[in-house]
Simulated assay, not measured.
Amino acid sequence: MVYYFTSNVVNPPATIYVGKDKYENEELIKHGWDQDVCAHVYLRLREGESWENIPEELLQDCAQLTKANSIEGNKKDNITVIYTPWSNLRKDGSMATGQVSFHNPKQVKRIHVPTRQNPIVNRLNKTKVEKFPDLREEKEEYLRQKRRAERKAREERKLQEKREREERERLKWQKEHAYDDLFSEENIAKSSNQDRDPNFLDDFM
Score class of each variant (00 low, 15 high):
Ala149His: 05
Ala63Ile: 09
Ala153Val: 15
Glu167Ala: 15
Glu137Arg: 11
Arg110His: 15
Ala178Asn: 14
Asp36Pro: 00
Ile29Ala: 13
Thr115Met: 10
Pro13Asp: 08
Arg90Trp: 09
Arg110Asp: 11
Thr80Trp: 15
Phe200Pro: 07
Asn69Met: 00
Phe200Met: 05
His31Asp: 00
Asn25Asp: 06
Glu27Asn: 11
Asn122Gln: 15
Ala189Cys: 05
Lys139Asp: 04
Ala14Pro: 11
Ala39Asn: 03
Arg163Asp: 07
Ala153Phe: 12
Gln35Met: 10
Tyr3Val: 05
Glu150Phe: 00
Leu124Met: 02
Lys146Ile: 08
His177Leu: 03
His112Tyr: 12
Phe132Asn: 11
Asp134Pro: 08
Asp195Met: 10
Trp86Thr: 00
Phe132Thr: 12
Phe183Arg: 14
Glu155Val: 15
Glu56Arg: 12
Lys175Gly: 02
Met1Pro: 06
Glu169Pro: 03
Arg123Val: 01
Arg46Met: 04
Glu141Lys: 09
Arg157Glu: 15
Lys158Arg: 14
His40Ile: 11
Thr15Tyr: 01
Glu49Ala: 15
Lys106Ala: 10
Leu201Arg: 07
Lys67Ser: 11
Ile79Gly: 06
Arg44Ser: 04
Phe102Gly: 00
Glu141Asn: 10
Glu24Thr: 12
His103Thr: 14
Val9Asn: 04
Val129Gly: 04
Val121Gly: 01
Tyr4Thr: 13
Tyr83Thr: 05
